[in-house]
Amino acid sequence: MRFPLAALAVALSATASQAAVPCGGSFSGFVKKMKQEAVARGHAPSTVDSFFRTVRQDLETIAADRRQGVFQLPFLDFSQRLISQNRIQRGRQMEQKWDDVFERIEAEYGVPRGVLLAFWAFETDYGAVQGDFNTVNSLMTLAHDCRRPDLFRPQVFSAIELYEQGGLDPASTTGAWAGEIGMVQMLPGDIIESGVDADGDGAVRLKTSPPDALTSGAKMLRHLGWRPNEPWLQEVEVPAEMDWAQTGLDTKKTASDWLEMGVRPRSGSLQRPDLPASLLLPQGHEGPAFLAYPNFDVYFEWNESFVYVMTAAYFATRLEGAPVYDAGDPEPGLNERQMIRLQETLKARGYDVGGVDGILGEMTRKAVQAEQERLGLPADAWPTPSLLERL
């Protein structure tokens, strides 16, 4: 699912007379104020009335937003759940079926087919499961909810613009619970910015046209910073001993520098020795290891979950021919209750863990790594029950 990090900047682009509608309060009052702001932004009153005529609050959207326990799984469990042999086989079939589309995409945008196939698989199972939430209802519900209103308010106004263009029906357009539409799940603002009529039928149809959906996804990735003809992730082997505190997204060295430190590609050679890369250990120094190149950072513009990003990037390499990872033998991690206890402990010590939610995100990893280093433990950012007891 695509959560744009620039949403707040878009929300603040309105003039002073178009002050942001506050979240919360009665939903009907919120709708009234959003309609007023839409008119102030230049939309015709009749269009605004028509757009909001069928809108209603959707409590199932709120429930789905709060129900994201799958992201609490560690990388090995999460990736093994999402990457099935059937998904790999379907990916091969889709690659062959739409080979000419992928060739055009790779030539024009420089986004490899494996990257798009992985998103297509994870987001909608190659278009089979696109979601049945009313898009406008979901966006308005999440904009009204006070957990992340600045993320979703701009998407409501983008949806109005999409409606004006004929690309959305407020009463019937459906998609994911967070307002994404189509085979690769794009938000209204992304569709306006990156939607492509790749099949030449005169319309951008992301729900029914694989060429439109895949090409639009590629254009969006380029807009987000994808660098053509560069790798994104490569599995490596690490030495038994090294300064584990240098691992993680914040530390970047050229791939050749990592080679000098004893890091070796698990198969083949370094894809780009000259590029900066981070050494990532999703389950510590005894689990799988990867070099993450600059394109890996673009994944976080698509989804902010570390475990999702790792899995999507890894699956893309599999679809491009990489072998199954070496799972290693990592120490057991923490269950949800233990992770919450860890986050509470780290927060009490002054760390910003990005919320006590039981999910091992990047901010929690940074805090864990700092404490491991302080305690003289391998600072690989992988929290274990023994670390929790030490803390």
Score class of each variant (00 low, 15 high):
E106C: 05
G114A: 09
M94H: 14
D100G: 02
Y126R: 05
F157Y: 15
T135N: 08
W120N: 00
G110Q: 02
D150W: 07
T124E: 06
T124N: 06
F133H: 12
D99A: 15
P154T: 13
E103G: 08
P112M: 06
E123T: 06
R148E: 07
A159H: 11
T135H: 04
R148D: 05
Q96M: 15
D145I: 01
D132G: 11
A107T: 15
E108S: 13
L116A: 04
G110N: 07
A107N: 12
E95N: 13
D125K: 10
S138F: 06
R104E: 15
F133Q: 06
F122K: 00
S158A: 14
N137Y: 06
K97E: 14
A118I: 01
F133I: 07
P149I: 07
F133A: 13
H144M: 06
L139F: 12
R153Y: 02
S138W: 04
R148V: 09
L116K: 01
R113D: 06
S138K: 02
R147W: 07
E95R: 15
E95K: 15
R153F: 01
Q155E: 15
D150T: 10
R153E: 07
R148K: 15
W98C: 09
D99C: 08
W98Q: 11
D150Q: 12
T141L: 10
F102K: 07
G127L: 08
D99I: 11
S138Q: 05
L139T: 10
F152H: 04
A107H: 11
D132N: 13
S138T: 11
L151I: 15
V101M: 08
T135D: 08
V115H: 01
T124V: 02
F122I: 07
T124S: 12
Y126A: 02
W120T: 00
V136D: 05
L139K: 05
R113L: 00
P154M: 10
D145F: 09
G114E: 01
G110H: 03
S158K: 12
L142M: 12
